[in-house]
Amino acid sequence: MIIENATMEDVLPLVKLAVVMFNESPNYGRYNDFDGGKVFDILVNLVDSDSGIVIVCRDDSGEIVGGFVGGVDVMWFCRTTKVMYDNALFIHPAHRGGMTAVNLLKEAFRQAREKGASQAQVTNTTGVFSKHVERLYQYVGMEHVGGFYKLDL
């Protein structure tokens, strides 16, 4: 597996991977309004931005099988303190079980430090293997400080 920064050529394959993520999620997959154009635009903006962090994982054939999408921004209640955030961390179901997610996160943390972030803040809102994801985040040294709550309206 190869971990590297995404390029503009990787945006469309990442949108296709986002479809897999969306459909697998019991939280998001029940909606019928996935907007690939919006996802495409967000990815283009992040790939093109100095504050974006978009990392892909390729298999031996060069196909993208996972990725991290996020960036670094000033905390909403601070003027200078920067934090890393995530939009998505996803590994295609056929490629799970190894160290790919760990390696993606470690690279995201490295890039976030480089961009001036003093903390990483990530979420798990898909509802897929939540306990596994919690263990993953703890494995890479993260502390559980809150939770994600939802209410269908």
Rank of each mutant, 00 (worst) to 15 (best):
N124E: 15
I91E: 06
L89G: 07
Y139H: 15
Y139G: 05
A88D: 04
E143F: 06
G97D: 01
T125R: 14
P93Y: 03
Y137L: 02
Q119H: 05
T125G: 05
T100M: 12
L89C: 06
H144L: 13
G127N: 05
K115T: 03
R96S: 09
Q138R: 15
G141H: 10
T125Q: 01
V140E: 01
H132D: 13
G116C: 01
L104T: 04
P93M: 08
Q111R: 15
E134W: 07
V133M: 12
T100N: 10
K131C: 08
K115F: 05
M142H: 09
V102R: 09
S130L: 11
H132Q: 14
L89R: 10
T126C: 03
S118L: 01
T126R: 05
N124Y: 12
S130E: 13
M99F: 11
E134N: 06
L136D: 11
T126M: 12
P93C: 04
H132K: 15
M99R: 14
A117P: 10
R110V: 01
R113E: 12
R113V: 12
L105V: 03
M99I: 03
Q119I: 15
K106V: 02
F90A: 06
V140G: 03
G127M: 01
A108C: 03
V122E: 10
E134S: 14
H132F: 01
K131P: 04
T123W: 14
R96I: 02
T126P: 08
P93Q: 04
T125F: 02
V133S: 00
E143Q: 15
H95D: 04
E114G: 10
Q138D: 07
E143H: 13
L105E: 01
G141R: 09
E143M: 11
K106R: 15
V145K: 11
Q138T: 12
G116E: 08
Q138V: 12
V145E: 03
F109N: 04
Q121S: 13
A88K: 02
G98E: 00
A108P: 10
S130Y: 05
F109M: 11
R110D: 02
N124F: 06
V145F: 04
K131L: 12
V102T: 13
Q119K: 13
G127R: 09
R96H: 02
L136K: 10
G141V: 05
V145R: 13
T123P: 07
Q111K: 14
T100G: 09
T123F: 14
A108L: 02
Q111S: 03
Q111C: 08
E114Q: 08
Q121E: 15
S130C: 00
H144R: 14
A88M: 13
V128G: 05
G127D: 01
N87G: 07
Y139P: 05
